[in-house]
């Protein structure tokens, strides 16, 4: 009981002498905040060596983060924001390249390789089986 009272006392003291820190950017909903996080993580800072908007401290990254924040709060969709950035800074700002005929190999190449790999695997196994059967005869 005493400890409980102490706890309450501590909490009260804390509340009276400390302010809770606020987020640098405030969002109207948690969803918006999550969308913001994922957008600034996937957009590349156009001026930096190789950094996304979230990690970069450069002036343009700060401005573009603010722009993304504002557009989200204005009710723009993720695609609209991406299109907005691409129209101004080019495809270069997307760390997730858009699907197109030119990026077909990029996106599906690994899976084509995987298919080729499995074909090789199966053919090696089959050839081995044939050879073993041959050896037995």
């Amino acid at each position: 009981m005493i400890s409980f009272r102490l706890l309450v006392l501590c909490l009260l003291l804390n509340l009276s002498s400390f302010a809770w820190a606020e987020e640098v950017m405030s969002f109207s909903s948690d969803l918006n905040q999550i969308r913001y996080q994922s957008l600034v993580n996937e957009l590349r800072c156009p001026k930096c060596q190789n950094q996304n908007l979230a990690d970069s401290g450069s002036g343009i990254a700060v401005d573009l983060r603010e722009q993304v924040h504002q557009m989200i709060e204005d009710g723009k969709s993720d695609q609209e924001i991406v299109d907005y950035m691409v129209a101004r800074y080019g495809e270069f700002v997307l760390y997730r390249p858009q699907h197109s005929s030119a990026t077909f190999l990029l996106w599906y190449g690994p899976f084509i390789l995987l298919a080729i790999g499995f074909t090789i695997f199966v053919s090696v196994i089959v050839r081995n089986r044939k050879r073993r059967n041959g050896a037995r005869l």
Partner: peptide, 13 residues
């Protein structure tokens, strides 16, 4: 043109 291939690509592929 110029494109970037970054973490989102590698994470999904």
């Amino acid at each position: 043109g110029k494109i970037s291939v970054g973490a989102p690509y590698f994470n999904s592929v």
